[in-house]
Simulated scan of single mutants.
Amino acid sequence: MSRDIKRIGVLTSGGDAPGMNAALRAVVRKGIFHGLRVYGISRGYEGLIHGELTEMSLGSVADIVLRGGTILKTARSAEMMTPEGQQKALEQLHKHEIDALVVIGGDGSFRGAQTLAKGIQIVGIPGTIDNDIPGTDLTIGFDTAVNTVIDAVGKIRDTATSHERTFVVEVMGRHCGNIALQAGIACGAESILVPEIPFDFDEICEKLKRGHQRGKNHSIIIVSEGAGSAYKIGEELHSRSGFDTRITILGHLQRGGNPSALDAVIAAAMGGKAVEIIMSKETNKMTAYVNQNVVSIPLDVAYGEMPPFNRELYDLANQLSI
């Protein structure tokens, strides 16, 4: 990329994640600091296709650093998955003379961005609560989501203790059990069920019975949604153990709320790094949090193989909940 960079666009795509606004703020303000004109694109690729671009100012991102969600909104776009939709999006970028595009989202959002890499610089910022993008130790929103689960489980444990019940708590994670694992070990769950590792009902029930025999009058079981239906798991546990069992599905509660300090700091650093990548005229790059530093890596890494599930931490959780 040899031409001067004058205008950049930024959008949020896919599922929202706490910290997206902090990343957006950093892109806008650092871009303006370097003399760039920054355009916010509403509703992700759907908004891009329909020309929903607005020039951002310093004031347009004021007081959003600790706000959850995304002020740019986000939407799924079936049209963007078609060559016709991609061409419309590219035409809008050229029409508004956008030289570079920053995409805050997951790997699906990054794939959409790469279809636009025809004379447009592309930089991805990983934002997803699942922490399921290769190449980065953390994604924006993961730490907040885990802390949201821990807070909810603390409240659930109060009522579980009062009523002497077993609670099955379902958390997000269709293909990745990171939220369940981290939250489960942090809140001392009796069992953690994740899609990466098969589980045995008899083993879970035996653990519940051992706890009951030593005077434990309640239990918490964390289930990643990809491991199975919490309702079916709860019914099976009740049938096999006889314990009074209740179900709580946290759902989209995990996406909301102010970002944690860690997420806000990582998001700001990634937003700033994205502008630095653009200023250095690199393209098809992704910001990544590696060994407590934000660095630039090839965007293709996001489509690679995920690191192995942390079996050591999972085994430790089981050992601590004997």
Rank of each mutant, 00 (worst) to 15 (best):
R76V: 14
D137H: 12
P83S: 06
D107Y: 07
D107E: 14
A160S: 12
A113S: 13
F110H: 07
Y45S: 03
T161P: 00
I122D: 00
D143M: 06
V153R: 10
T115K: 12
R165E: 03
V171C: 09
E97Q: 15
E84R: 11
D151E: 13
G141S: 11
V169K: 07
I156Y: 02
D99E: 12
R67A: 15
G119E: 05
S162A: 09
R111T: 11
H163T: 01
G112F: 05
G177K: 01
V168S: 03
L101A: 10
G68S: 09
R76T: 13
K95H: 15
I98K: 00
H175A: 12
G154T: 05
I64Y: 05
S42E: 04
I125M: 05
I156V: 14
N178W: 15
N131A: 07
R165N: 01
L90W: 09
I104F: 04
H50W: 07
G59P: 02
G135L: 11
Y45P: 02
F142C: 09
N131S: 09
T161G: 01
V171M: 08
I64H: 04
H163V: 00
H50R: 14
L116Y: 06
V65M: 13
N147E: 12
G124E: 07
T166C: 12
G127H: 10
T136C: 07
T54F: 05
G141E: 08
T74A: 15
K118T: 03
A100Y: 03
T115P: 00
M80I: 15
I104H: 01
E164W: 01
S60V: 07
D137A: 10
E55H: 08
G44S: 11
A180I: 13
E52P: 00
V65N: 06
T128S: 13
I140Y: 07
A113W: 06
Q92N: 11
H50T: 15
L93F: 02
S109W: 11
F142Y: 13
L48G: 02
D137I: 09
R157D: 01
E55S: 12
S77L: 02
F110G: 05
K73C: 09
S77E: 03
G119A: 11
R76Q: 14
